Amino acid sequence: MSPELLRSAYGDLSALVSDLRPEEGWQPSGCAGWSVLDLTQHLLDDARRGLVALATPADGPATTDAVAYWRSWQPSPEDDDSTAWRTRVRASVTGGLPGLAPLYAETAAAVVVAAGRADPGGLVATQGWVVRVDDLLSTLAVEAAVHHLDLVAHLDRPGPPPGALAEVRRVLGELLGHPLPAGWDDATAARRGTGREPLTDADRAALGDAAASFPLFG
């Protein structure tokens, strides 16, 4: 994946976060149990993951890629609850969105610069995996796009850029093993593919046995 796609995903998300009003931090997001403030803290954490990974060269071979990375991401409900609690505690001591938004903006900008300077075929380490830089950038863009949808789920704000949503759809299709239903636009594919929206009866009929694989990642 090209650095330009990450630049677009992070640029639009950073602009959104920077424009949020402090009181909007306590609005619910599309990520069940998470407020907008909680999710902004999580986005900062993921940008930091990207920055650290881009500065952590690794020896080969690669142990995951842009698709397999998500296949291994299946946290238990207990893990989800623990992560949500830790995230809420950290988000609550930052001074709210006015404290978090500039931290996210500067970290996201640094990731984009580092991504533009990195060798796309180079290997880096992240979360115990070894991955090509271009695959790392895909994971960052996919996470940004899905959580951008989460942030605006209950807010009248623009969603993620089309290129980032198309990358989410590509990854979900690879996880499923065949294309997602043609009647889903890319935002619907992202929400249903990750369990943000339930499958309809028509979806289940179209997907057949593959419906049992949903959500494809959480």
Results as ranks from 00 to 15, higher is better:
residue 7 R to G: 11
residue 8 S to Q: 08
residue 11 G to M: 04
residue 13 L to W: 15
residue 15 A to R: 06
residue 16 L to S: 07
residue 16 L to V: 13
residue 17 V to G: 11
residue 25 G to S: 04
residue 28 P to Y: 06
residue 29 S to G: 03
residue 32 A to C: 02
residue 32 A to N: 05
residue 34 W to A: 03
residue 40 T to M: 04
residue 42 H to D: 04
residue 46 D to L: 01
residue 54 L to V: 01
residue 55 A to P: 01
residue 61 P to F: 00
residue 62 A to I: 05
residue 63 T to S: 04
residue 65 D to G: 00
residue 66 A to E: 02
residue 68 A to M: 00
residue 70 W to N: 03
residue 71 R to M: 01
residue 74 Q to F: 00
residue 74 Q to Y: 02
residue 81 D to H: 04
residue 84 A to Y: 13
residue 86 R to A: 10
residue 88 R to Y: 07
residue 89 V to W: 00
residue 93 V to N: 07
residue 96 G to Y: 12
residue 98 P to W: 13
residue 99 G to S: 06
residue 101 A to V: 14
residue 106 E to G: 10
residue 107 T to V: 08
residue 107 T to G: 07
residue 110 A to P: 15
residue 112 V to M: 03
residue 115 A to L: 13
residue 119 D to M: 06
residue 119 D to V: 05
residue 120 P to G: 12
residue 120 P to W: 02
residue 123 L to T: 15
residue 125 A to D: 06
residue 127 Q to A: 03
residue 127 Q to R: 10
residue 127 Q to I: 03
residue 131 V to Y: 04
residue 132 R to H: 06
residue 134 D to A: 06
residue 135 D to R: 03
residue 138 S to P: 01
residue 141 A to K: 06
residue 142 V to F: 11
residue 147 H to Q: 05
residue 149 L to N: 13
residue 152 V to K: 08
residue 153 A to N: 06
residue 156 D to R: 11
residue 157 R to M: 13
residue 162 P to Y: 03
residue 163 G to M: 08
residue 167 E to T: 13
residue 175 L to W: 15
residue 176 L to R: 15
residue 177 G to E: 10
residue 180 L to D: 07
residue 180 L to H: 09
residue 182 A to W: 05
residue 183 G to H: 12
residue 183 G to M: 09
residue 185 D to K: 15
residue 188 T to A: 12
residue 190 A to G: 10
residue 194 T to M: 09
residue 196 R to K: 15
residue 196 R to A: 07
residue 197 E to G: 14
residue 206 A to S: 03
residue 209 D to Y: 13
residue 210 A to K: 13
residue 213 S to A: 07
residue 214 F to V: 09
residue 214 F to S: 09
residue 218 G to L: 05
